[in-house]
Nucleic acid binder design. Structure first.
Length: 194
DNA sequence: CTGGGGATCGAG
DNA sequence: TCGATCCCCAGG
C-alpha cells in the first residue's frame, strides 16, 4: 500500500470522501497499530459556522490555513483528543475530522490503551480512536506522510458506498448544521453511534 | 485575570 | 441524561 496521494490543495469535501477507505498507521514504543478510515466529517473555512476557524484565526485554529496533510489535533471537553487532516483549496481553510476507524492491526495494543476488549468499540468515535492510536497534542502539526503517524492510500470507495449526512454535535452552527458533510461507508459496523 | 463553552465518552 | 475536566480565547 502506498502513501496517501492527496497532500495537495483540493476541496475539503472531496478529500473527506477520498479519505474513506484509506489507512491510518501509528508507530509508538508500544508497537504499530493501524485501521481503515470508515467515517469522517469535513469542516470548512470562515463561511462554515460549524468550523472552529469560523470564529476567527487564533493560535489554535491557524493550522487550518496551513499545509494540506498536516495533523490538527485538539482536546475536546478537557478530556478527549480529536485528529483532523488539514485539507482545503489554496488560500482557503479547512480540515477533515477522522471520526471512526475499522481496526486492522495492533488490536491487542488498542485494547490495552482503551481498556475495552470489543473490537467494534475500539475506534468508533474521534476520541476513542485517538486513545487507541496514542494520538496526543504532540502530533499537532505533524505531516501525515511521515512516521510515526501516517496515511496510506486504500482502494477507492465508490460513491454508491458512501453515505452523506449532517455532522454531529454542532447545534450552534445555524444553517451549516444541516450540511451533509459527515461521510461514512455504508453498512460498515465500525462507525460511531447514531 | 476571569469565566463560558466545547467537532466526546461512558456510567447511571 | 449528565458529569468529567481543561484548554482556548474574548472581554475587562
Amino acid at each position: 500500500m502506498k502513501q496517501w496521494s492527496e497532500f495537495r490543495f483540493a476541496e475539503t469535501v472531496a478529500v473527506a470522501r477520498d479519505l474513506l477507505g484509506s489507512h491510518l498507521v501509528s508507530e509508538t514504543a508500544d508497537g504499530v497499530v493501524s485501521g481503515k478510515i470508515v467515517e469522517v466529517e469535513a469542516y470548512g473555512g470562515f463561511s462554515d459556522a460549524g468550523s472552529h476557524i469560523s470564529r476567527g484565526v487564533t493560535e489554535r485554529t491557524k493550522i487550518m490555513l496551513d499545509r494540506p496533510g498536516l495533523a490538527y489535533v485538539y482536546i475536546i471537553y478537557g478530556v478527549h483528543h480529536c485528529i483532523n487532516v488539514v485539507a482545503h483549496p489554496e488560500g482557503q481553510a479547512g480540515a477533515v475530522l477522522i471520526r471512526a476507524l475499522e481496526p486492522l492491526s495492533g488490536i491487542d495494543i488498542m485494547q490495552k490503551r482503551r481498556g475495552v476488549q470489543e473490537i467494534r468499540s475500539l475506534c468508533s468515535g474521534p476520541g476513542k480512536l485517538c486513545r487507541a492510536f496514542g494520538i496526543t497534542k504532540e502530533h499537532n502539526g505533524h505531516f501525515l506522510a511521515e512516521q510515526p503517524l501516517y496515511l496510506l492510500q486504500g482502494p477507492q470507495v465508490g460513491d454508491e458506498q458512501i453515505a452523506a449526512v449532517p455532522r454531529v454535535n454542532i447545534d450552534y452552527a445555524g444553517e451549516a448544521k444541516h450540511w451533509p458533510w459527515r461521510f461514512y461507508i455504508k453498512n460498515n459496523r465500525y462507525i460511531s453511534r447514531k
